[in-house]
Design a protein around this nucleic acid. Structure first.
Length: 627
RNA sequence: GCCAAAGUAGCUCAGGGGUAGAGCAGCUCACUCGUAAUGAGCAGGUCGAGAGUUCGAAUCUCUCCUUUGGCUCCA
């Protein structure tokens, strides 16, 4: 089964002026290739050429679609239309609502345009000429103004449609295949990605060199659905949601087993770095949130409650609680760095449209910790954290190439003065330098109290999810806020810097990522059920049960399947349940204390002694092997 | 929250103004059965919720809820 792919270097994405800044390098599905989860590895020259061709095809197809839409709605206002992963989109301001029933008409127009074999011509003009050309296109006028002074202003024309565009494009629509594109969906998108701006109608499409490729891509998408964590959650009996309680997860035994194992893994890992673990209340008074700044900056995301005329809120973050603990007793510089961890249960009132399976929910648990330290200790603490994160991600199956690191700078909505932000951002940048960490800048994406590093992983469909993070905070511990003080070497009172950090981010989201990464076939150490003992016939049920019991007593998660089904069906069922090992036992095995091992990958090892099997999976678990 | 689509049995889906169907799963019974489905029988749904149109609504209309794909926001 082909999964995803490789990437075009990041430079390519900015070909179309005004394209949303969030668009990144794009993933290319390559039909012939056997694939892993996406990596950011660079392409070989041949693949690069193909990527460039597809880029042009998709870009030009976006223009062709724009012309088709203008044929239907001559009064439409056009915005932007870049190529993206596997396709393209174009944003329009239309006189009426569009539905998917309109696709047929648009596609017909597009096919006609492509078959017209029109050349794609480029002209370079001045800014004023451009403004005159687009005087009835307000979005284009804005884009002209946004083009930096030193860059040329160019137009591309295909057939009757001229667009402000940097290119590149195919030379002629005969380079497009009229059977190898398809409009996929309609979505609203805010002009320039800003929710204060009007919402435009975005049409997404896919385009390829030939129809076979497109077919393979569409089939591939269907395959990917099998890795969807929501589907796996149901099929493997991991968790569920209730319609009247959106964004709140009900963990079933299997799912909770993974959850518990992951928590234990976190405990062991951070324990080695000298963290202490604490637990703070879920309900905290408004007075605290007032002081922390959350009431002012974060209230819309908080569930608020009342008791005897006093307001409280369910905690959306754990930081204030940790400061409360830090404040107990007098702290000395000798106590720093103090690393305080909590499996912090957070509740956030996320907007309904943002919810997504277990990846984005309203109730979740962070593997949170706050490091109270001096300014001088920031870089060594960041370095230590990066080391911890990389090690843990590696154990969980994510190598460095699959982690995207972003440096998020000060947002508009923030607390603290600019001088302090300068220091915080500077300290974090310096720490990255010392840790040898490469990152991309995400301007304005920081937390309201400080800049952050984000460690992002990718799901089955190539969507990015922030998981780990470390954030530098001079604000919350300050005297004006929550007032965490310590006595320094000089005998005076000082304010520590607080580093907010999480490795997995939220257990929920990380499990979602893990499920999609492994397609539900969890590594043996994380599998809810590690082995099922299958007797070949009812006569061996007792022996099978005894073996399962023995393994269970020794700490493995093992079941015996004593149902009415025949052995063949049991194998099928447990394989579908992604159980790593099936132990088939009959007369021969029971007599000789051996097992016939069958793995979920269909490998078979017959005549393995029970002790050999134990040693084998013990080793796999120790080494955190997949199978 | 915004734009688009969807919601029929536990799951996947068919049907469609006269009051609901399949496969799988479930339950019961039978079968001494060696590496991806043993057979037979039974049971399962106020067709997401509410209102309206109609002699009659699961089917048409409206409102709401949830979910999916995007946008915004975020662990």
């Amino acid at each position: 089964m082909p999964t995803c792919a490789t990437l075009v270097p990041l430079g390519n994405q900015k070909e179309c002026p005004g394209q949303g800044q969030k668009d990144r390098g794009f993933f290319i599905f390559t039909p012939e290739k056997e694939p892993e989860m996406s990596t950011r590895a660079s392409l070989d020259p041949k693949a690069q050429e193909k990527a460039d061709r597809l880029y042009k095809i998709r870009h030009t197809t976006a223009h062709v679609m724009a012309e088709a839409v203008l044929r239907m709605f001559p009064e439409a206002k056009i915005a932007i239309g870049p190529p993206i992963d596997n396709g393209f989109y174009y944003d329009f301001d239309l006189p009426r609502k569009l539905t998917e029933e309109d696709f047929e008409t648009i596609e017909e127009h597009m096919r006609a345009i492509i078959q017209g074999k029109h050349p794609m011509t480029k002209e370079v003009i001045t800014r004023n000429q451009a403004k005159a050309r687009f005087n009835d296109q307000p979005y284009k006028l804005e884009l002209v103004d946004a083009i930096p002074e030193h860059e040329e202003v160019s137009l591309f024309t295909v057939d009757t449609f001229t667009d402000l565009c940097r290119g590149p494009h195919v030379e002629n629509t005969k380079d497009l295949n009229w059977k190898a594109f398809k409009l996929l969906r309609i979505a609203g998108a805010y002009w320039r990605g800003n929710s204060d701006n009007p919402m435009l109608t975005r049409i997404y499409g896919t385009a390829w060199e030939d129809p076979k490729e497109m077919r393979e891509y569409l089939d591939h998408l269907k395959e990917l659905e099998k890795r969807d964590h929501r589907r796996l959650g149901r099929e493997l009996d991991l968790f569920h949601f209730e319609d009247d309680n959106p964004g709140q997860i009900f963990w079933h035994h299997n799912g909770w087993t993974i959850y518990r194992l992951l928590m234990e893994f976190v405990r062991e890992s951070i324990g080695r770095q000298g963290y202490q673990e604490v637990h703070t209340p879920s309900v905290m008074p408004k007075s605290l949130w007032d002081r922390s700044g959350h009431w002012e900056k974060y209230q819309e995301h908080m569930f608020v409650t009342e008791s005897e005329k006093r307001l409280f809120a369910l905690k959306p973050m754990n930081c204030p609680g940790h400061i409360e603990i830090f404040r107990q007793g007098l702290k000395s510089y000798r106590d720093l760095p103090l690393r305080m961890a909590e499996f912090g249960s957070c509740v956030r009132n996320e907007s309904s449209g943002a919810l997504h399976g277990i990846m984005r929910v309203r109730g979740f648990v962070q593997d949170d910790a706050h490091i109270f330290c001096t300014e001088e200790q920031i870089s060594s603490e960041v370095a230590l954290f990066v080391e911890l994160l990389k090690g843990m991600y590696k154990d969980l199956g994510f190598d460095e190439a699959s982690i995207i690191v972003k440096f998020s700078t000060r947002p508009e909505k923030r607390v603290g003065d600019d001088a302090t932000w300068d220091r915080a951002e500077g300290a974090l940048a310096e720490a990255c330098k010392q840790a040898g960490l490469e990152y991309e800048i995400a301007p304005g994406e920081g937390a309201f109290y400080g800049p952050k590093l984000e460690f992002t992983l990718v799901d089955a469909l190539g969507r990015e999810w922030q998981c780990g993070t470390i954030q530098v905070d001079y604000q919350l511990p300050s005297k004006e806020r929550l007032d965490a003080g310590y006595i320094g070497e000089d005998g005076n009172r000082h304010t520590p810097v607080m580093l907010h950090r999480a490795v997995l981010g939220s257990l929920e989201r990380f499990i979602g990522i893990l499920l999609e990464h492994y397609g539900g076939a969890m590594p043996v150490w994380l599998a809810p059920i590690q082995a099922v003992v299958i007797p070949v016939a009812p006569a061996f049920y007792e022996g099978a049960q005894a073996l399962a019991k023995e393994l269970e007593n020794e700490g493995w998660r093992v079941l015996a399947d004593l149902g009415d089904e025949r052995m063949n069906n049991k194998i099928r069922i447990h394989q579908a349940q992604k159980v790593p090992y099936m132990l088939v036992v009959g007369e021969q095995e029971l007599a000789s204390r051996t097992v016939a091992v069958r793995t979920r990958k269909n490998d078979r090892i017959d005549g393995l002694s029970v002790d050999e099997f134990k040693a084998m999976i013990d080793e796999k678990i120790q080494k955190k092997d997949v199978l």
